[in-house]
Design a protein around this nucleic acid. Structure first.
Length: 594
RNA sequence: CGGGGAGUAGCGCAGCUCGGUAGCGCGCUUCGUUCGGGACGAAGAGGUCGGAGGUUCAAAUCCUCUCUCCCCGACCA
């Protein structure tokens, strides 16, 4: 490709509304443009990157017997009504009506359509297992898109769905996808870690997320350097060790204490001069729970120790709730509690589900609210002063907490979820009536798995990790071009132009992906653009070199400059491209799923 | 949805307090000189000042409403 013809523009300054590094660089390098909040267009260079990533995805999915298909973005609402998600999912699901008044949705994922498709085609266990995937547009009307391509509304996803005759077959296949994902990310030059994750409303029994570790990520993971434990904060556990427990301490009598204008844990601990761990935090939530087809709201009173944070995912799962929301002040008063001074002692238990974290029974003599404005209670003891309905782990693991397997301190890190894999089970196949006949002639719902990777997030994460003050530093496997050819020709040096043109066609013929800077620009402009675009190899042809029969090769990720003689240039470039590609591929992680 | 910030030329910004009909840098066009890390000179093109309404002789500037974008939080099957 000739730069003089390329549809793009580099920017010296990043647009003011981009403040995430990858977003700034993508805009400055002319890879993408923003159309609206969370809506982007890809320019030629950006699309080349996207296509390369998708080629890697295809190769790896095909290698585990995946078959590519394409499903529609616009789908009839009736499919979503059959699985119930039309009713369960809120405003994230974009809905529209066609000219005839038929309800449609913009696909945010494709379980409904693919399950119906598979159900229609697969009739016999002999056709199983099968893996279908597509690389397609998704639309999720996120309340707050952010960070360039990190969190968007319209995006491209590689989504795969596997269908199995039984759980054993899924259990056998799932680890293959797990490894294929490491292959994809590794080949794209991106380090990821796989963590256990919440299955959420997707249902199913096991799920993993593939996280690119970066500060701009929205998820928090807890890692153990000692034993290798790693989990998303949503599901991470930790040891509430004996040092945390004061179970042996004798219970003291209840005592009211005046605490005017002390309505936070921090203020309370400060006011009474006690550690936060000697306080009880009261949280008021309203859960939407479905029971026997009835949907009802349940007031939930949660008690956790003052130094801990509630993990809403854990609580949601414990309650099997569809949704959790904070309670309103009136609702809190209605059950006999006082916002800011809440305590489980003396509330209207008939309407309240009282959940305490399992550390609370081992934490005697806590300070809790007195359900009276400006007052707290000392020496509140679970079991003596109130009896919980549920005693379970509902707090979030945090940095420094002891690892659940080896008790070494956990480390909290941020990451971007670039992929996920789920064992779905039969949730969708049952709802969509996707069954087959087994060996005994019985009609059985298919067992499913589903597997996603976001193309844009992968690109953004790769840039986030590979850049310097001058621009992007692409892994060669996903770079828009492998080589940036700089011609330093001027009007007085036609021999430089001739040489550059010749080298350009030689490299192209040899299959090297060349971006040829034939623009009438000064050297500095070309070098700076080469750095900004992050092309892995840069080959410079100038008057000096032409005289000596050499071109200069510099790698974006290294300092040295090498001189290559023109008569062997194609071979040498090819060798470097191969070596760089091999270096990326050598870092692919092989990690058997435990 | 709550809190904060911003919309003026392709990008970055000034002008607004105190109304008088829009400016700077980069980029873009033409010519000349230059040419190995973002050149110089000269001449140009480009703006419904986010939108609507109002006040006024006069609105980028004051008032009201509204739209959009960004950040933090809530949310994220």
């Amino acid at each position: 490709m000739r730069m003089s013809k390329l549809f793009f523009q580099t920017l010296r300054e990043a647009p003011a509304d981009a403040d995430v590094r990858s977003h700034q660089l993508m805009l400055r390098a002319g890879l993408v443009r923003q159309v609206g909040a969370g809506i982007f267009e890809y320019l030629p260079l950006g699309l080349r990157v996207k296509k390369k990533i998708e080629t890697i995805m295809r190769e790896e999915m095909d290698a585990i017997d995946g078959q590519e298909i394409v499903m529609p973005v616009v789908q009839p609402a009736s499919l979503w009504k059959r699985t119930g998600r039309w009713y369960e999912i809120g405003d994230d699901l974009a809905r529209l009506t066609d000219r005839a008044g038929r309800e449609l949705v913009l696909a945010m994922t494709h379980e409904e359509v693919i399950t119906e498709l598979a159900g229609g085609v697969i009739n016999s266990y002999r056709q199983l297992p099968v893996m279908l995937y597509q690389i397609q547009t998704k639309f999720r009307d996120e309340p707050r898109p952010r960070g360039g391509l990190i969190r968007v509304r319209e995006f491209t996803m590689k989504d795969g769905y596997s269908f199995h005759a039984d759980i054993a077959s899924l259990d056998e296949y799932y680890p293959l996808v797990y490894q294929a994902y490491f292959n994809i990310f590794g080949r794209a030059g991106l380090d990821v870690i796989a963590v256990e994750s919440d299955t959420g409303m997707m249902g199913g029994t096991m799920a993993h997320e593939f996280m690119a570790l970066t500060e701009v990520g929205e998820d928090t993971m807890l890692l153990c350097n000692q034993c290798g434990y790693k989990a998303n904060r949503q599901v991470a556990t930790f040891v509430k060790s004996s040092s945390e427990s004061r179970a042996e301490e004798a219970a003291l009598p209840l005592e009211e204490v005046s605490t005017p204008n002390v309505d936070t844990i921090a203020a309370l601990a400060d006011f009474l001069d006690i550690p936060e761990s000697r306080t009880a935090k009261a949280l008021f939530l309203v859960a939407t729970i479905e029971e026997d087809g009835d949907v009802k709201e349940q007031f939930v009173f949660v008690v956790v120790r003052g130094d801990m944070e509630l993990n809403e995912t854990k609580l949601t799962n414990v309650l099997k709730a569809r949704q959790l929301r904070p309670a309103q002040a009136e609702e809190i008063r209605a059950i006999g509690a006082e916002p800011g001074y809440g305590s489980p002692v003396g509330i209207r238990r008939d309407e309240v589900l009282l959940v305490v974290d399992d550390l609370i029974p081992n934490s005697p003599n806590l300070v809790a609210g007195a359900n009276r404005d400006g007052w707290h209670l000392r020496n509140v003891n679970c079991g003596r002063d109130y009896k919980p309905d549920l005693t379970v782990d509902v707090v979030a693991a945090a940095d420094g907490h002891p690892c659940p397997t080896c008790q070494a301190p956990l480390r909290a890190v941020r990451g971007v979820e670039v992929g996920n894999i789920f064992k779905l089970g039969t949730k969708y196949s049952q709802a969509m009536d996707a069954s087959f006949l087994d060996e005994d002639g019985g009609s059985v719902p298919m067992v499913m798995g589903c597997y996603g990777i976001g193309s844009g997030r992968l690109i953004a994460s790769a840039i986030e990790k590979n850049n310097d003050e001058n621009g992007i530093i692409w892994p060669i496997t996903i770079a828009p071009h492998q080589l940036y050819l700089v011609s330093l020709a001027t009007r007085r040096t036609p021999e430089v132009t001739e040489t550059a043109e010749r080298v350009y066609s030689q490299l192209q013929e040899a299959g090297v992906e060349v971006l040829y800077d034939d623009r009438d620009e000064r050297a500095g402009v070309k070098f700076n653009d080469a750095d900004l675009l992050g092309t892995p190899l840069r080959l410079t042809i100038g008057a000096r070199g032409v005289k000596n029969g050499v071109a200069e090769l510099k790698l974006r990720n290294r300092e040295e400059i090498r001189e290559l003689p023109f008569d062997d240039i194609v071979n040498q470039i090819q060798a470097v491209v191969e070596a760089e590609t091999a270096a990326v591929n050598a870092k692919v992680i092989t990690e058997p799923l435990q």
